[in-house]
Design a protein around this nucleic acid. Structure first.
Length: 431
RNA sequence: GCGGGCGUCGCCAAGUGGUUAAGGCAGCGGCUUGUGGUGCCGCCAUUCGGGGGUUCAAAUCCCCUCGCUCGCCCCA
């Protein structure tokens, strides 16, 4: 390819898409505002050590998926592969944690060097929530409910909430040993990948997609059985609360998340519309992370949702239900008024009028072509605008013009060019 | 990183070795110098992702390369 093009896995968002993104982001922001969350914006570039220490040296994300390079000062820098580590770093650095509970949200691009596939890109976008300084089961559920309600408001269907408890570090270590013992007696029945993981990260064998491995695991000891009394009780509370809030969920004892910092509640929201990369939103509790990054002991929960995947689900929902909320969000808006104009004096007049109307809150498409009026009207029609008006030599001469309805038969409104209030009244009441 | 499929105009798409590479949508111009939606007419790929090779002859066959796509790995 000799033509310049975007890097592999780096995707342009064209106007057709940015409209939908903005609509979705607006819904998300409204939810965050009502839930008392504040936005935080952190740099895209961080020192590599942040992610190595935060996410876990042994994870795939850190081990083989990071965009890491040395800057001119020979510091090792990394394009953030996820948001949580940065948010925590920022909260520690600026002393936010000594100012009480921090309820934060963020949105922006993340970078992971992976082979692109459906719902997976090298630069992708997440909207995330981090709630720092609270440890109750209730806060887990509040955070999960926020994600659930947000997705529901977008008119999405076919979503499933899966939850699990990863317990405490001690719980996991104890269980890890049980699982390894059990699996080692059956190594020959494991697939090659899982045999490898038996050494590197045994818990990850649990969510292997290999059917025979899954069949084998049916009789394996589960993480839930290995939970301490307190951990088990805590998880009971989470489930009880979800039931009380009537948020449907699926208990998935195999749900293990790939980032080291999770403990206790872990959850994912998956869609049946996405193929292999089914997770739209994932998160959980990460009580140890703040301390691990040099901050005070601080409990925390959060989640991140993938915008690209969300948009795929939204588009599917819009297609399946043309009258639903999802379809409304994906619709392209038409201008309130399409202004046809021609003639030197008239074009200036039209420009001025468009400006006045826009200031008054009316959306105006001003035809800038200077083409024949018939031509301009064709474009007016295609714009989907409910109204059109012509400003030409006659109108410039008389100071009068007419608003013409385009979508349905109706009467034209003759108005004075300087009667802005009357124009706004017509345009706003009927659109 | 590994395995499968694919790559013809902005989008969809016919063509699978032989004169000028269909068609549709969109776009632009006209029929119609001041009034749209329908209709009709015209324009819109010297070139088939890129490079090399085979052949008298390639979009069509071969090799390399880039990209997309599906799955694995992993995750949003």
């Amino acid at each position: 390819m000799s033509q310049l093009q975007s890097l592999r896995g780096m995707v342009d968002l064209l106007p057709d898409h940015t409209r939908r993104w903005q609509a979705v982001e607006a819904v998300a922001r409204a939810h965050f505002r009502r839930s008392g969350l504040a936005e935080i914006r952190t740099p895209l570039l961080e020192v590599t050590e942040l992610f190595a220490r935060g996410i876990g040296e042994a994870t795939d994300v850190v081990g083989k998926e990071m965009y890491t390079f040395a800057d001119r000062g020979d510091r090792s820098c990394t394009l953030r592969p996820e948001g949580t580590a940065s948010v925590v770093r920022s909260a520690i650095q600026h002393g936010l944690l000594s100012q009480g509970v921090q309820k934060l949200w963020y949105a922006g691009p993340m970078f992971r060097y992976e082979r692109p596939q459906a719902g997976r890109q090298r630069q992708f976008h997440q909207i995330g929530v981090e709630c720092l300084g609270v440890s109750t089961a209730r806060s887990d559920v509040e955070v999960i409910a926020l994600a659930w309600d947000l997705l529901r408001d977008l008119g999405l269907s076919g979503l499933e909430l899966q939850i699990n408890s990863l317990g405490t570090l001690e719980d996991r270590q104890r269980y890890r040993q049980q699982l390894v013992n059990w699996l080692e007696a059956r190594v020959d029945q494991l697939d090659v990948d899982s045999q490898q993981r038996l050494i590197t990260n045994p818990l990850r064998i649990l969510d292997s997609k290999n059917p025979s491995t899954q069949a084998l695991l049916i009789d394996a000891p589960t993480l839930l059985q290995a939970l301490s009394q307190e951990s088990a009780q805590r998880f009971e509370s989470v489930q009880l609360l979800l039931n009380q809030l009537e948020i449907p969920f699926e208990l998935n004892p195999r749900l293990v998340r790939g980032l080291d910092y999770y403990g206790h509640t872990a959850f994912e929201i998956t869609s049946d519309q996405l193929g292999a990369q089914a997770t739209v939103c994932g998160g959980g509790r990460y009580d140890g992370l703040v301390q691990q990054l040099g901050g005070p002991p601080t409990a925390a929960v959060g989640w991140a949702l993938g915008m690209e995947r969300l948009m795929l689900v939204l588009e599917a929902a819009a297609k399946a239900n043309p009258d639903g909320a999802a379809a409304r969000l994906t619709a392209t808006p038409a201008p309130d008024l399409y202004l046809v104009n021609r003639g030197e004096q008239a074009e200036t007049l039209a420009l001025a009028l468009a400006r006045q109307l826009r200031s008054a809150g009316v959306s105006v498409e001003l035809d800038g072509s200077g083409a024949a009026l018939g031509k301009q009207f064709k474009r007016a029609d295609r714009s989907g605008s409910a109204w059109a008006a012509v400003i030409g030599d006659e109108e410039a001469e008389s100071g009068q013009f007419r608003l013409k309805p385009l979508l349905a038969e109706g009467e034209e409104h003759g108005l004075a060019l300087n009667d802005l209030d009357a124009m706004v009244a017509v345009l706003k009441t009927t659109t």
